[in-house]
Each structure stands twice: as C-alpha cells, then as structure tokens.
Design a protein around this nucleic acid. Structure first.
Lengths: 255, 255
DNA sequence: TTCACCTTTCAGGATTTGCTGAAGGGTGGT
DNA sequence: ACCACCCTTCAGCAAATCCTGAAAGGTGAA
C-alpha cells in the first residue's frame, strides 16, 4: 500500500530487468541496430559488432529470454527482430541523454566539424543528420522506425520536407530504397539515408545552408545555415551563439 | 570508421552507464521519486523506500558520481535533486515499457479493479489516474515534472482540462498545492494530485463516467465511462476488445 | 562545550555476471 | 550420403556488484 521497494513488484522488476539488458555495450548496440536498421541475422550482427559468434550468442539468448527480440527460422538463417516497438522509445531516450551526463573529459571539448555535420555517401550524417531525422519524425513527415522493417515509410504531413526545400514529387526511388534509417555511430541515433536522404542534402546544398569541399566528408555550415538551421531543426544546437560572426572560431563551450 | 562496439565510445559509454544505474530497484525507485515528486532529503528517501541509511547512501554516492543527481547542503540536511530533466524521459520510457516485457504470468491476467481505477485520498490513481496525467501533459495543459520542483505548473493549453469537465476558474488552491505529481506505486508512473487532481475526480463523478462506492477506494467505470474515457484519454485502454479504427495515435498501443 | 542527529565511508564476504574455448544439433548444397 | 555452414550450449575462471555492520565527519540545539 505504501511506498516500498519490493523487488517482486512486476512493474519494478520489468523496468530494472530491461535496464540491465541495456547496460551492456554489445546488447545495447545490437538492439540499436535492430531498432534503427531493421531485422538482422546473427552473423550480420556479429559482423557489424566485430565480436565472436558465441559471445554474441550468449547475449542474444538473454535478450530472447526476456522477450526483447523475436526469432524466425528462415532456412539455415535465424532472423532477429525487435519484439516490441516500445523498446525504440527507451533506446532513443537513452541515446538522447548521452552527452549531458557523459563522464570523462569534462569542460569544453569543442566538437569536431565532422561530429557536427558530415556526409555519409550521398546523405548527411553527424548532429545535422540526426537532427534532420528527428525533426522529420517529430513533425510527421516520416514514420519512426519500428525495428521490424528496414525501409521507412512517409508520414501524413510532408510539410517538414517542404520546409527543408525538398520537392517530394521530384524524388523517385529507382532501385534504391526511398528512405532508410542509418545508425549514426557517433551519436547512437538514426540519421536519414536512401533517396530521400540524398534529396535533403541536395536541397541544403542548393539553398546554401551547408557547403561541401570536394573530396571531404566534413560539411561546413554557411552563415545562412548557422542562422536558419536551428530554426528549421529544433534539436540542432546553434553553434557558438556569439554576436561576432567569426568564421574561424570553433570553440563552443556548451554543457 | 565502420560500426564497432567500442566500450570507450563516449556516447555508448554514457548510455550503458546510465542503464546500469537504472538497473537496481533502489536506485531506480529513488530516481523515480525524485523525478516525479521533486527534491528529497536522504532520510525522506530512506523512509519512503524502507531501506537502511548506509544501504541507500551507497546507491546515492553512485548516482552522485555519475552526476545523475545534485546535492545541496541545507543545514544538517542534504537535499537531492535530479541533475538533468532529460533523465525524466528515460524513466518514463522505461516505466511505460513495463507490462509488455513483464516476465512471469504470461497471457491474460485480468487486471484487478483497483489496478484500473481507484482513489488516492481525493484524486484518482491507478491506470485511470496515470492516463489522466499523461494526457494533460501530452496536450499541454500541464507542464511535465522536471524533478527539481514539487509543485506542477499549468501549461499553455487548458483545453484538455475543459474536455474532462473541469472548470479551471472554479479551482482555487487554498493552502494546498494546485497540482502535484504522485508516483503511482503500481504502475511506476505519475498520477495527478493536489486541488486540480481532486477537481478532475469530481468532474468525472459528476459526469457519471466513474462511480465510487462509499468507503471503497476502488472506482468502477460506468457504461458511459467505458465508452467515453478511451476517447478522452488515448493511453487508457478500452476494457474489452474493440476494433478502434483510429489511425491518428502517434504511439501504437500494443497488447 | 556536549549531546543528538544526519550523512558518509570503509572492509568483509556472498552472489551474480561475462568471457573464452570447445563441443553439440540442424540446415542446405553437392 | 557427405560436407560446409549457421547457430546454440556447456564448463570453468576472472571480474564486478551488492549487502551487512561498524565507525567516522559534520551540523544544530541545549
């Protein structure tokens, strides 16, 4: 009746049990991959994580026992999927927490340009790519990944894409997928890939918000981009936020 | 460059470290209390959790080391607060996951009436109280708790309260607080207390959506309530199986 | 100052967790 | 039938985690 920490309380046990599964780098990364990039077979996971099969297998057995993942026999392969879409919420909340409580080098470590914005093949990654993805999902232009499919579908309200300068009618998926979620290994959050991701990058370049040096993967924000991108993308932090427009400054003492 | 599970990756380390802190019943409950009901002193926490001071102290030392909580000396008391409001998101995501992954009695265990709806002093608790709170926050009638204050403030859009039949002008906080968040020990999620919580219960009773038997804490849903409450409160599950052709929900409520 | 209290820290031992390496079922291709 | 491959499981050892009980800072009140 009163408040007491009872380890057998089903709600409490479920929460701590889930947290314990997420408290291991291998299990967490495997779940993030399943959540963001859809179903994987075990060797795909073992290859992506660069760990031995038995080691991964033990962790997958745990995840299966807690029914966090489901398995499906397909020939001699075993396909793993996230069991519940709710798990995605927990994973993103965990990843979003990320920086603020990050232990280690405290005080101003200026983020590298590649950490802020860079290209991943033909679409944008880094903080910018993550913010693009989050905004599109938030505003209903894109349906959030559910960990069960590897291709994303469009949402009911495409206005967010129009605001970014993307002409949706001009985007034609050829043999490539329209939109995929790609786990950003720096930020542990999804960024937008596929034909749509390329269209967003093209639009940002055409509007002069970012600039790309030939042969470089890092993207640099133009003055216009520094002004307008934080408005378009609520999650995208304004870089140094100082009145002096100094293109050489890179020290942002946030945190 | 490629995806590799590197335990020193700051984002990954931060996420697993946070998950590990949440993986203990005492730490999790303590954080939930701080997140939902505002600052506590250590003895208040030890009393609420019914654990010895040294045992709690060890856990609080961990939380302080990871900077999940902050401490403030006030006389000979030490006040603990949540360090970052972001932590609340992780806690609610964890708690919401709750049931789906709950190990133990699988398949239909009919929820007891008190688990669905009951009174807590003069306001409603249980699943109904939790859904009321979630809806008010979701629709902007109430500001989500931040773990730093113990009284809630109203949000920008009071329409959700009007929809529940509450006349906000008639609610006058006397010596009691207007609105507080109360950790529902069954569901590990906040429900609404304070004068506003009482007003909501009065409105539900006046509209004939729920009925209260004298001297009983359990609330029973009327037929009208069973029809209308799932419409008013998206998170509130309809008791029997129903087709519910409503694709507008942002989060799919499975199971 | 002295006392009472709140809070923190320490050392010991029991339990749990995680990795390595090898062996045990199943499936599909030849 | 055989072989190659994918996946799972097992045993043993190393490491981390957690609880109990006692003792050590500080603070405010008498």
């Amino acid at each position: 009746m009163t408040g007491w920490v009872d380890p057998d309380d089903p709600a409490l046990a479920a929460a701590t049990s889930l947290a314990r599964e997420l408290a291991d780098p291998i299990r967490l990364t495997a779940l993030q991959l399943l959540a963001v990039e859809g179903p994987h077979t075990m060797t795909q996971l073992a290859d992506a994580l660069r760990v031995s099969a038995p080691r991964l297998g033990n962790h997958l057995a745990r995840l299966r026992a807690r029914e966090l993942v489901t398995v499906e026999q397909r020939g001699r392969h075993v396909v793993y999927r996230l069991a519940s879409p709710d798990t995605v919420d927990v994973l993103t909340a965990l990843a979003r927490h990320g920086r603020p409580a990050a232990p280690g080098p405290r005080s101003a470590r200026p983020p590298s340009p590649a950490e802020v914005a860079r290209t991943c093949y033909d679409h944008c990654a880094g903080r910018l790519g993550v913010a693009v993805f989050a905004t599109l999902v938030e505003r209903g232009a894109l349906l959030a990944p559910d960990g069960q499919h590897d291709e994303l579908r469009l949402g009911p309200d495409p206005s967010a894409l129009a605001d970014l300068g993307v002409d949706l009618d001009a985007v034609r998926p050829g043999r490539r997928k329209l939109a995929t979620a790609c786990l950003d290994r720096n930020h542990r959050l999804p960024h937008l890939g596929g034909v749509l991701g390329a269209a967003v990058l093209d639009a940002l370049l055409a509007d002069g918000l970012v600039r790309r040096a030939d042969g470089e993967r890092a993207l640099t924000l133009t003055d216009s981009g520094a002004r307008n991108l934080p408005v378009l993308l609520p999650d995208f932090p304004a870089p140094p936020a100082d009145p002096a427009p100094d293109p050489t400054t890179t020290t942002a003492a946030e945190r």
